[in-house]
Design a protein around this nucleic acid. Structure first.
Length: 263
DNA sequence: TACTCATGAGCAA
DNA sequence: TGCTCCTGAGTAG
């Protein structure tokens, strides 16, 4: 489920498994021909900003973006690495562990200048430590300048990095905000709440590996049907007021919301 | 077996 | 706004 929390979780796992190890990098599927540019190098670190992951090798960086379909598969082994299954774009192999990447939108080798370019176009990430409040300030500054609907604004990775369709719907529901409200008309206190809630929920997502958004259901592993307030619940009664949950398209993406709770 | 759908985003017009 | 790309799970027939 590739929203920002998945990517941060993967970066942590990658660092834990592979940091300071020499990796054999290959492309079983054949489409990641640049794998040879990093194969044989040590992995220095793994980092995530929003939905982008960066694998820093000694002399180059691998940038990965999962898109909708992308997935990582990790495995430990004693003697022989498991045979790749399906369309494995990239395989990262140490002596005892393997990470297979399937179906990413992007998997490429870039240099530090290109890393800086990608990072510059990304907005603040609620999962990055923000002790001095600068990330929040960046978010508020961007929000103050745009009349785009808040539902659309939250999907813009240059506005806030890491939010996807699920968190967008659930964050707006939790704060009772109409997704069509122009962003510059959303009171600052509410924008701050959205930011803090995103940070809170996404940290849970990183820890648990699944998206949880319902009060009283933030622990354990609730079934998919019990996990969200509005996401994928069109036509069903709102869990708070009982009104029918609405579904509409907002810039080609499905938007779920409750017209009664989100005035 | 064939078809549909999905948590995303870049690009052209 | 519409088209395109990427893969696999679920469902209809």
């Amino acid at each position: 489920m590739p929203e920002g929390h998945t990517v941060h979780r993967t970066a942590n796992k990658f660092a834990k498994l592979f940091a300071n190890k020499q990796l054999e990098v290959s492309s079983p599927q054949g489409r990641f021909t640049d794998s040879r540019l990093v194969s044989g190098q040590q992995l220095v670190s793994a980092d995530a900003i929003g939905k982008q992951m960066f694998l820093f090798f000694e002399h180059a960086v691998v940038r990965v973006h999962l898109g909708i379909y992308g997935k990582w598969r990790f495995a430990n082994f004693d003697d022989t690495a498991p045979v790749p299954v399906g369309q494995v774009r990239a395989r990262f192999l140490s002596e005892t562990a393997v990470a297979d990447l399937v179906g990413p939108t992007a998997c490429e080798v870039i240099d530090s200048d290109q890393v800086a370019l990608v990072q510059a176009r990304l907005g603040p990430d609620p999962l990055r430590q923000d002790l001095d409040g600068l990330e929040l300030a960046r978010f508020l500054a961007k929000a103050a300048k745009t009349r785009v609907a808040i539902g659309q604004f939250l999907m813009n990775q240059a506005a806030i990095a890491g939010i996807g369709n699920v968190y967008r719907a659930e964050l707006l529901f939790r704060q009772g905000i109409n997704p069509h409200l122009p962003t510059n008309l959303v009171p600052t206190e509410l924008l701050e709440k959205i930011w803090q809630d995103a940070s809170f929920l996404m940290q849970i997502g990183v820890k648990k590996g699944i998206m949880l958004t319902r009060e009283g259901h933030l622990n354990g592993r609730p079934a998919l049907a019990d996990r969200y307030y509005v996401y994928k619940r069109e036509g069903l009664p709102c869990r708070i007021c009982g009104a029918e949950v609405s579904l509409e398209l907002m810039s080609t993406r499905k938007l779920y919301w409750c017209r009664t709770c989100q005035k």
